[in-house]
Design a protein around this nucleic acid. Structure first.
Lengths: 161, 161
DNA sequence: CTTTTGGTTCTGTTGTTCCAGAACCAAAAG
DNA sequence: CTTTTGGTTCTGGAACAACAGAACCAAAAG
């Protein structure tokens, strides 16, 4: 391995740790986050089981579980090559995008729950608080609709090109 | 307690469980989520330490910790009344709103990380993947800017009234 | 058929989170 | 001063999550 390759590898490793933490903080298990991060930065962008295990220095079971949660959530899939039994795992960009969208749309749930609360509080002895709450509900619904609109617009723009 | 009060209490208890689960799923500890939910639906909308403990049937330490994490995150604060040593805890609507906004703005971080990845991949042997990735970055940035815009617009509208 | 390969599933260990109970502490009341 | 009140902090246990290692299994290779 040349010095240049070594530097590249070092940068990749750094990026994986950095992004791994990010994905961890957004809900994935540590190793699962790092697997996803690795598939994002590795070259070429698809790796077989052993390569992932080797790079992350983790056990087979841990890698297997990480990959199966990622695939079951649609964020990763794999390709194969004839004459080669291995699966080559890679980021499923479409599935990932869908995940991002769904997570954003989930924001609307809070609005619905708060609507119920307001209903219950309508004859409350403390209208000032109901009023504050109402502001939040309005904001929440405004945002939920706005985000939906943004996503719809973007999808329409994609359909054209 | 009258039958009507009993029914009301039952509804409140249901709502607290329901919303408690929601807040739990969005990152709070189970009891912490229920404390927040209780403060949202209770009448009047401020309760002292013992009332919260009693309603949720939890230990003092658990309630104390829940309240201190909620206050340190700015989602709850308390008021006092002269001649009464107790603190009356309540939802801090402004702080909560700020939290919601900040969480949404955090979406931009992913865009920055992916920008770095694209930079690294610019001379990749697999431009198809870089291209897909670029789509996600564009979408992510589009959304981040869009959400910021939504929030700014809303704040401007609030400032007027 | 037997062996190897690519991966999954089971079992056990370690570490972390959530909470109860008790000890503790400061301020107010007596 | 001593006692009570309103709450915080310390200690420990139960439950769960993350991972390693080994057993396992199906399909391909020999």
């Amino acid at each position: 391995m040349t010095t240049v390759d070594g530097e590249k590898e070092e940068r990749v490793r750094e990026k994986v740790e950095q992004m791994g933490v990010f994905f961890e903080r957004s809900g994935l298990a540590p190793l699962t986050g790092r697997v996803f991060a690795y598939l994002l930065v590795c070259e070429p962008p698809h790796k077989d089981f052993f390569a992932i295990q080797e790079f992350l220095q983790a056990s087979k079971s841990a890698v297997s579980n990480a990959l199966s949660t990622l695939t079951s959530e649609g964020m990763v899939d794999y390709i194969t090559f004839s004459g080669d039994r291995r699966r080559y795992f890679r980021i499923n960009t479409a599935g990932w995008l869908n995940n991002l969208k769904n997570k954003l749309r989930r924001a609307a749930v809070l609005g619905d729950l708060l609507d119920d609360v307001l209903q219950e509080r309508c004859d409350s002895g403390c209208p000032a608080f109901s009023n504050e709450l109402n502001k939040i509900v309005v904001f929440q619904n405004y945002l939920a609709r706005g985000i939906d609109q943004l996503i719809d617009d973007w999808e329409k723009k994609q359909a054209v090109t």
